[in-house]
Design a protein around this nucleic acid. Sequence first.
DNA 1: TCGAATTTGTGCGTATGTATC
DNA 2: GGATACATACGCACAAATTCG
Lengths: 266, 266
Amino acid sequence: MNEENERPRYLRIADALRTQIAAGELEDGARLPSIPEMVREHGIASSTAQRVINVLVSEGLAIAKPGSGTYVRTWPEKGYMVCSWHRNARGGSPFKLEMEGQGAQGNWDYESRTDRAPGAIRERLALDDPADDRPNAMHTSYLYRRNGRPAQLAESWEPLALTRHTPIVLPEDGPYAGLGVVERMRQIGVRVTHSNDDISARHITLAEAQRLEVAPGEIVLTRTRTYYADTLPVETADIVVPASLYTLKYGTSIWDEPAEERPQSA
Amino acid sequence: MNEENERPRYLRIADALRTQIAAGELEDGARLPSIPEMVREHGIASSTAQRVINVLVSEGLAIAKPGSGTYVRTWPEKGYMVCSWHRNARGGSPFKLEMEGQGAQGNWDYESRTDRAPGAIRERLALDDPADDRPNAMHTSYLYRRNGRPAQLAESWEPLALTRHTPIVLPEDGPYAGLGVVERMRQIGVRVTHSNDDISARHITLAEAQRLEVAPGEIVLTRTRTYYADTLPVETADIVVPASLYTLKYGTSIWDEPAEERPQSA
DNA sequence: TCGAATTTGTGCGTATGTATC
DNA sequence: GGATACATACGCACAAATTCG
């Protein structure tokens, strides 16, 4: 039945639409053919036309709106996150300062609770395997927004051994709320000296797509960041940002002499 | 029919499997329930079971093999690239040293030619718009290998205004071949002071997938790196690495005083 | 305000092709 | 060759959201 056409019909039709989008014939926000239209134009079944839409949506090229139609995705202007050269954030959060530096507004939601750190986190924080059931870490979930739109997710972990019974136990509460790890730790006499970042990328999960209000199938940059006070890990975080929205920026200084050796997380 | 279950059945079943994978109950390479098995277990139609598989495969969590089954995706051992703290590479290439530090073998293919830098590259190198047709940059394409397997692609551009009539015009030829940008530039009295990296991610192109010998649909990390001698850009490169093979590592030092301002590429 | 038409989303069932074991 | 399993495609039904008269 397929004759010499190797590629399935639903992919060929998706290819054609993708090409039109790339060529600019279908601009941002343009309406794609509806399912009944595709059925008439190509002589396919409605379920096949539905798959065409699924492909484009899962690639992030289109947004489907039930009751309305499917539209070419309008890409927001790409922002960036400066990840190196720590900003001295006396009087404001690093995220907020970064956004304001770009002429945007930055704010965030969060939720903190004490928790038992899972194995991977214990390793990154150099925590011993716990003997009892008591929580050993403060776990905070963040949703950062840029101009009101979700921009970045983060799961942060801090060892309770360090912060218990201090005014900074809760990262987003108390006198030093929202100042960032470096500044908060300074308040209890812990001087953060450096951080290590591991960067990778993967497809977004459905849960993340919902929280970030982006299409499933989107690609996210994952950043695991650990702050150290010399050799002691004081915070570690899993950070997720949609690659379509942000670029990560790093700067590296180059000296003539080899840089001092510092602990790496891997 | 949905009663109080908001989430569609095929997504709930996919969620359950995803959870099992995340929890380690289903290990790499483990066989997922086949379509007929899911039909029996959950009382769903085969086409619905098929959709469960589609979801997991499109998320990169599983690989479907017709005639055999669907298997949890086996991720190859992940390597890493240390991107910060420049290695003083007297006597070896940075890439080779990095790989040897990981107990792996590093080598590369390359191809150099003089070229006219396109607009985006001219901007990154702060080159004037050329008045004539003469080439203004040395353009080198790299394919790096780790233990003989393709690992990383790079397109490097150096301004000919800097290197013309010097022994380092050709990055991979002459007395200082293969030593890396920092060391080569030192040979002509140019002291590289810092670099800026912009990191993003996207789907691999077909051409890249073929050169890197990975599956199309794979995700790649893109890294645009520019080296500076103070304010003067001396090299810029577009680097592409499969996210399934490598993690990028960055280290950041934190001082009490704000770091010196340095040119950013954007 | 209401209702009809449109459109996407989910799900069932069936048939056929093709790759693997 | 036969059994198994995934991939594509058809056709149908209904739900839910949107649009518009």
